[in-house]
């Protein structure tokens, strides 16, 4: 690791001052599970590290107006274990429980994960399907961005150098919604996914009133599958309709070949796992796929 200055501000304001004064040679660190690893491998060589470990009041979980506000410094395991999240947003608890291991989840933060911007991460996929927003604060104010606009490219997000991600806002699902997050792990249980998929479905009188689908690990960012959603909205979820709509998601896949599978294989698996996620969500919504 290259030598660097280390700062531990105790408030958001102090952190924002440091981010501005240290400029782009500085990196912000929370749990460090992503960044310290990258620094050890010299993939990132900051001149200064601004640790948020001593900043108070950013790790809360707050539920109001039908939304869960997750503080940027809330760690993954706290989310997994939160009774409120388990009850109001079980898809989120299920998704975060699939990230790495307890040891990593204890320190990896929700905000840190989002700004890390690795397309192989789990949370982004479900957060996309949940219509999550993120709040970004700078000295000049706070702006809120839909997660889909926040994610830009491999390890790249729309955050500006003078901004800090403050929280994620996730609308609670209606009680009758079905949901699923599937993580395809052909190697080990703590690996990144070969392909992952999330689905949210709301059925009314046997017809899909609301359907949201996203996949991960198969493009520069997690991707929301709007064409798939359009094909299914207002339709009965027959096996044929699900298959055709899931196939459509493959058009958005742009994976790279690696140890977890070839690009061609991952693209095929996007179709498979999007379909399975839809099926599982529908099963949970109490409406097994028609025709079975």
């Amino acid at each position: 690791m290259n030598s660097f200055e280390f700062f531990a501000p105790t408030s958001v304001d102090e952190a924002l001052d440091l981010i501005v004064s240290k400029g782009e040679d500085a990196k912000i660190v929370a749990g460090g599970t992503g960044l310290v690893n990258m620094m050890k491998q010299r993939l990132v060589n900051p001149e200064a590290l601004i640790s948020l470990g001593a900043v108070r009041g950013l790790d809360g979980l707050e539920i109001s107006d039908g939304k869960v506000r997750i503080g940027a410094l809330c760690n993954h395991q706290a989310l997994v274990k939160s009774a409120e999240v388990g009850q109001m947003l079980p898809l989120l608890a299920e998704t975060y429980s699939k990230v790495a291991t307890v040891r990593i989840r204890n320190f990896a933060t929700v905000g840190g994960g989002l700004v890390h911007g690795d397309p192989n991460q789990d949370p982004q996929v479900s957060l996309l399907a949940l219509n999550a927003d993120v709040s970004l604060r700078s000295k000049s104010g706070t702006r809120t961005l839909p997660l889909k606009d926040f994610m830009v490219d491999y390890y790249e997000t729309a955050i500006r150098p003078d901004e800090l991600l403050i929280d994620a806002l996730v609308p609670v699902l209606p009680n009758n919604a079905g949901y699923a997050y599937l993580k395809f792990l052909p190697r080990t249980a703590d690996d990144y996914a070969t392909v992952s998929a999330a689905a949210v479905t709301v059925l009314e009188d046997g017809v899909l009133k609301d359907v949201r689908v996203a996949f991960g690990s198969a493009a520069p960012t997690a991707r929301r599958c709007q064409e798939t959603e359009r094909m299914l909205t207002g339709q009965r979820p027959t096996p044929e309709a699900l298959r055709a709509a899931a196939e459509k998601a493959k058009d958005l896949a742009d994976p790279v070949s690696d140890g977890r599978g070839s690009a061609a294989y991952k693209k095929e698996m996007v179709g498979v796992f999007v379909r399975r996620a839809l099926e599982k969500a529908l099963e949970r919504a109490g409406g097994a796929v028609n025709g079975r």
Partner: peptide
């Protein structure tokens, strides 16, 4: 492993288990 995967360096930090190979000593102040 040195990358937070194998668990050999597991210890407890403020009661929570941690991969101490991917955490900086200055962060544990």
């Amino acid at each position: 492993c040195g990358v937070g995967v194998c668990g050999a360096c597991t210890m407890l930090l403020n009661g929570k288990m941690i991969s101490s190979c991917i955490y900086l000593a200055v962060m544990a102040d």
